[in-house]
């Protein structure tokens, strides 16, 4: 069984926000709607301070609370682990927005573009009226994943079928692949390193792993 997941190597991320920009470019999200963002976290006290960058988006959970609360079945978890939204089914009740512990979902209430009423080329191309007044979030570039099977390509290996954020990452901090495949890039990396997932105590089983150190055995 395929289970797509993402790894984010916090040791590598430099906070350049290229993934954020790539996501905006690729998906044409409205101003104020960010399916992906990079948190800029400062910890410690002078002189022992550290700055860490943490990309966040939909975690495509094993047990998505958004799917559980959705009254319409618009939100569905697929067999490959991706959590999708049927925009034609969603009523925009925001219950899923409240249920998500990762602030991954948002609702665009108006048709807005980055520079006023006139859309930029990518916005015009990607504009989808079905996405207004309904919940939306990172899809892991689901249409690319769906093309993988048809084209005989592997998500996370071939850029054509890999999420835009992963392709754009300048420092190679983000990887994508099938975590059930022991030979996938994400499986190998997770074996070599120590990672955590956000708010695991809530039982959601997030599909995004944050790598923070080498595996003890590697040291």
């Amino acid at each position: 069984m395929t289970r797509y997941a993402m790894t984010v190597d916090l040791r590598r991320c430099v906070g350049c926000q290229t993934c954020t920009a790539a996501c905006k470019q690729k998906n044409g999200t409205a101003p104020g709607v960010q399916w992906r963002k990079v948190l800029d976290i400062e910890t410690g006290e002078f002189p022992d301070v550290r700055r860490t960058f943490m990309p966040v988006a939909c975690m495509h959970c094993d047990e998505p609370p958004c799917e559980e609360v959705c009254p319409t079945t618009a939100t569905q978890k697929r067999d490959d682990g991706l959590v999708s939204i049927d925009y034609d089914m969603c009523i925009g009740c925001s219950n899923c927005v409240m249920a998500c512990p990762y602030e991954a979902r948002s609702i665009a209430h108006d048709v807005k573009f980055a520079y006023g009423d006139k859309p930029m080329a990518n916005e015009a191309k990607m504009f989808d009226p079905a996405r207004i007044e309904v919940a939306s979030k990172c899809t892991f570039c689901i249409e690319r994943i769906d093309q993988a099977h048809e084209q005989g390509l592997t998500p996370g290996v071939h850029p054509e079928v890999t999420p835009a954020c992963v392709n754009s990452c300048a420092s190679g901090a983000m990887l994508f692949g099938d975590i059930e495949d022991p030979n996938s890039n994400v499986s190998k990396l997770l074996k070599e390193t120590q990672s955590f997932r956000q708010h695991e105590e809530l039982g959601t089983g997030p599909g995004v792993y944050y790598i923070w150190d080498k595996n003890d055995e590697e040291l």
């Binding site: 559980e68 609360v69 009254p71 079945t73 969603c90 009523i91 925001s94 609702i107």
Partner: peptide
Amino acid sequence: CVWLEIGRPWRALNVFKHVSTSWMSREA
């Protein structure tokens, strides 16, 4: 009041579709 709040009020009848897990569906 809820009907006034939802983004797509003319699809409100979809709210009945997920009784198996959604308490919002069950309320409806």
